[in-house]
Write a protein that binds this DNA or RNA. Structure first.
Length: 572
RNA sequence: GGUUCCGUAGCUCAGUUGGAUAGAGCAACAGCCUUCUAAGCUGUGGGUCGCGCGUUCGAAUCGCGCCGGAAUCACCA
């Protein structure tokens, strides 16, 4: 049981014993570090029961707890706040149970199955920094939900059809003279991206090319063999390129949907809505849902020519996924520019009578912005994902050279290490900010490697591993627990806070909660490291306890950073 | 115009189920490597928590009203 819960329970017994009245919900929190003690009980809500001053109430409850709970070693009352301290023995026992729990930080199974959709790229241009945020969030949130005891299915919906890909195809036919990724040495997604840029120029020179593109789209719809063949070829180039980027980022999916398979879904739901009267058909044949009573507008579901629109497809895919996978809920990792879309989607599904409509969740994340505002491909301010990953690798290499300790790392491991550090810096930089907020990226300033960063935590881990390597001959695995000093107790308290953090992070879909936790733990460890020479300790029991403690810290750091998709090195 | 979100140190961000003196990092300045890795540690300076009113023992946090910014409201996806 957590310390706060324990105190809340005991204090409520105290109130009943002292004042003869059951206590209301007691407010117990972890004490801010500026004050003595581990937990704080706020006395103000109890004054109506105790009918004494805050000071007297606090002192009475404190004294009762001290008499009745051996775990509690001291208390004091400051301005109506009862601060309670646990004994060293209490924390020693907490540490023992954490250290012996191999599944520490993995929560009990919930029996729930959740689908997480993320990435969902268009196939007409390479991935950029905005996609990187989406991918990292999606992958990390999937990890969080899994650690919180859920079964998770990671999925993506590739937007592989439509007018945008036809534009690239048209430009390739007209201006690229048979160029292929092989002939140009270019990554396929970048080559197709170039076609798209070229098309934009063509349309500017001669707006009528748009008609050619529409003709092409019609041919695609009619399954014209030539158009389909080119479409398949160019999509293949793009997918091969994406796969490389996903691999570099460590991203994978359990199931991939392609829009050319799903874009017709949802039409039968429209019929269902018409039958039940929640949708209406206008004289021109178009189908609508009136959401004005819900404070929104009228929403189109089928065009007058009978073709479906984007939201029609989303209705259909949601319905198919829930029934096919027997889902309890689905999380969509999609930018906040689509808030309205998902609001409408949920509402429509609810009107269609699906009980699970309230269990679809839009993880709406903020855009990544540059100092001069949003990224604009027309102005060439887009930060390309592949370039960024490469740049981070270079930065890691240069910084390692400056740090001058790279000699400790075997030659053949260095490249892997630079990649790990560069990627760690990038991922942490993105994931440490609250997903809901927009974030700023300045391409002119490189991402830091000092302070609250991924490499700081990687470095902390490497320091611990280094000590443990030097203690190879010491048998510390099952130490006779020795007394913990104040710094060590602080570390144990932070370790104990990990499982609730996992639950909190999963509840609010926020990897940032975990990132900040990792930073707190690493910072606390570095202070400990600075003033406690572990290996110099002569008392065998104390030495082994310390080794076990720092080992546990390294394990929790590795688990927590693993939830962010960040690896920690043995040395750096 | 309607709806939603955001506004905390020079910069980037924590803190928002109401709690005590609002915290980190970067940048600036001053210290600490003969001692387990200095990508570290310690210290100094830096704040009308956008503004106002309200709710209460207590508000960065909740409510209302302003000011400033963003997104969105397509027979686009």
């Amino acid at each position: 049981m957590r310390a706060e819960q324990f105190i809340a329970l005991k204090a409520s017994e105290a109130v009943e014993a002292l004042y003869g009245t059951p206590a209301p919900e007691l407010q117990v929190s972890v004490t801010r570090k500026a004050f003595e003690g581990d937990c704080t009980l706020v006395t103000f809500p109890l004054l109506r029961i105790s009918r004494t001053s805050p000071e007297q109430t606090g002192n009475a409850i404190g004294a009762w707890l001290l008499d009745n709970c051996p775990e509690i070693s001291a208390f004091n009352v400051v301005k109506g706040f009862l601060n309670i301290s646990f004994s060293e023995l209490y924390w020693r026992n907490v540490f023992s149970s954490i250290a012996s729990d191999t599944g520490f930080g993995t929560l009990p199974p919930t029996g729930r199955r959740i689908m997480v959709e993320f990435s969902s790229p268009n196939t007409n241009k390479p991935l950029h920094l905005g996609h990187v945020r989406n991918n990292l969030l999606g992958a990390s949130v999937s990890n969080l939900l899994e650690a919180a005891g859920n079964e998770v299915i990671k999925t993506t919906l590739v937007n592989d059809r439509g007018v945008h890909i036809c534009k690239s195809m048209y430009a390739w036919q007209q201006r690229f003279d048979g160029a292929t990724p092989e002939s140009t040495g270019k990554k396929g997604d970048h080559l197709v991206g170039d076609c798209y840029v070229e098309y934009a120029k063509m349309e500017k020179e001669d707006p009528s090319v748009l008609d050619r593109v529409h003709e092409m789209l019609v041919k695609w719809e009619e399954a014209d063999p030539e158009v389909r063949a080119l479409w398949e070829t160019m999509n293949r180039w793009v997918f091969d390129g994406f796969d490389q980027t996903y691999k570099a980022l460590g991203i994978s999916f359990d199931k991939t949907y392609y829009e050319h398979d799903t874009y017709l879904l949802g039409k039968e739901l429209v019929q269902k809505g018409l039958d039940s009267g929640v949708f209406v058909r206008d004289p021109d044949g178009s189908v609508w849902c009136d959401l004005t009573a819900d404070g929104l507008d009228r929403k189109l579901l089928l065009r007058s020519d009978g073709t479906s629109v984007y939201i029609t497809q989303d209705l259909g895919t949601a319905e198919r996924r829930f029934s096919e996978f027997n889902l309890d809920s689905e999380v969509y990792v999609v930018g906040d520019e689509q808030n309205y879309h998902f609001q409408v989607l949920k509402l429509l599904l609810a009107k269609l009578g699906f009980g699970w409509a309230e269990r679809i969740f839009h993880l709406s994340y903020g855009m990544v912005e540059l100092p001069e505002g949003k990224m604009k491909s027309r102005e060439g301010t887009v930060v390309d994902a592949d370039d960024l990953i490469q740049k981070m690798y270079e930065e890691a290499r240069l910084t390692s050279a400056e740090a001058g300790r790279i000699g400790d790392v075997p030659e053949e491991e260095r490249d892997r290490l630079y990649r790990m550090i560069g990627l760690g810096a990038l991922k942490y930089f993105i994931l440490k900010v609250d997903p809901r907020k927009k974030m700023l990226f300045n391409p002119k300033e490189s991402i830091d490697f000092n302070g609250n960063t991924g490499p700081f935590i990687q470095y902390t881990h490497a320091r611990i591993r280094s000590i443990l390597r030097k203690a190879q001959d010491v048998d510390w695995e099952n130490p006779e627990p020795a007394e913990l000093n104040q710094k060590e107790i602080r570390l144990v308290k932070l370790l104990a806070a990990y499982p609730p953090k996992v639950a909190e992070a999963a509840d609010c879909f926020s990897p940032a909660v975990i990132a900040n936790y990792c930073y707190d733990l690493a910072k606390e460890f570095n202070q400990y490291y600075h003033d406690t020479p572990v290996l110099k300790e002569e008392d065998k029991g104390v030495l082994c306890t310390r080794l076990k403690l720092i080992h546990t810290v390294s394990q929790v750091l590795a688990k927590a950073m693993g939830l962010l998709g960040i690896e920690l090195p043995e040395r750096m």
